[in-house]
């Protein structure tokens, strides 16, 4: 396990050192960015709408019973912006994009394509890892901003049409505006940026260290997703603690 952590940190460091190559690799960054957005946007939309709805459904009636109907917008807004959107989107992207990264690079490693790059003096970190990590680091925060907006809308719809609440849109968003600050959204976006680096680095590392045939690729994909999610949850706590100060 410690060897893996060390290798992941080393890969991340090598990616940082490769940052001056970004302009040269810009087409691959764009392709990956488009791929991530294209593959995830609809899913993000559906997921976020229902997350917003279920948070309103869980907390709304309890708050209304205690004459705190005006606080529903704030509770839903904060929960989504600070916690649910970054974490849920990171988990979604780990499953949807992290797995694809590990599978693609793993397949290249197994079928000697990575070795072929090395024999041509093409650094696999520059060619394969850097574009993927940069693309996910740009894409995930943007998806989180989108997710926050859709989540708020989902919460507002449920709060408005559910008979246990009957909170008008205007009241919901007025309260949300009073309680949620730009800093809260920025915290969520910052967390998602860190999660993106985790997903990208862990998935690329698993891909590059794949050995064996198709079974090895399958193992790498599973490990990439599971390890990413475990690290996301751990870093979520650490970052939340850090950002509370």
């Amino acid at each position: 396990m410690f060897k893996n952590i060390g290798e992941i940190m080393l890969l991340f460091w090598r990616t940082l050192l490769a940052l001056p190559q970004t302009w040269r690799q810009r087409q691959k960054v764009y392709d990956q960015f488009f791929e991530i957005g294209n593959a995830s946007l609809l899913m993000v939309c559906v997921l976020s709408f229902f997350i917003g709805g279920v948070i309103a459904l869980n907390f709304g009636p309890a708050l209304v019973e205690r004459s705190l109907a005006s606080a529903v917008g704030g509770v839903v807004g904060l929960a989504i912006a600070k916690e649910l959107a970054p974490v849920m989107m990171a988990i979604l992207i780990a499953g949807r994009i992290g797995s694809a990264m590990a599978a693609e690079i793993g397949s290249m490693a197994v079928y000697q394509e990575v070795d072929a790059l090395r024999t041509m003096n093409i650094n696999p970190v520059h060619y394969l890892v850097l574009p993927r990590i940069l693309a996910i680091a740009f894409a995930l925060p943007l998806l989180v901003v989108f997710s926050v907006l859709v989540g708020w809308f989902g919460g507002a719809v449920v709060a408005n049409y559910n008979h246990a609440m009957d909170i008008p849109f205007r009241v919901f968003f007025a309260n949300l505006k009073d309680i949620v600050e730009l800093k809260d959204v920025a915290n969520g976006v910052f967390k998602s940026f860190c999660f993106a680096l985790i997903i990208g680095t862990v998935s690329c590392h698993q891909g590059l260290t794949t050995i064996g045939g198709p079974r090895g690729i399958g193992r790498s994909v599973t490990k990439a997703v599971v390890n990413s999610i475990v690290l996301i949850v751990i870093f979520d706590y650490l970052l939340t603690r850090l950002l509370l100060k």
Binding site: M108, Y111, Q112, E113, D115, A116, M120, N121, I122
Partner: peptide, 22 residues
């Protein structure tokens, strides 16, 4: 240069892109 047993062409690129990759 090494010519691999399997060829090890990059499957995501065309033959022309593979040959001109270096």
């Amino acid at each position: 240069a090494l010519v691999f047993q399997s060829g090890a062409l990059l499957n995501s690129l065309t033959v022309g892109e593979n040959v001109g990759l270096y």
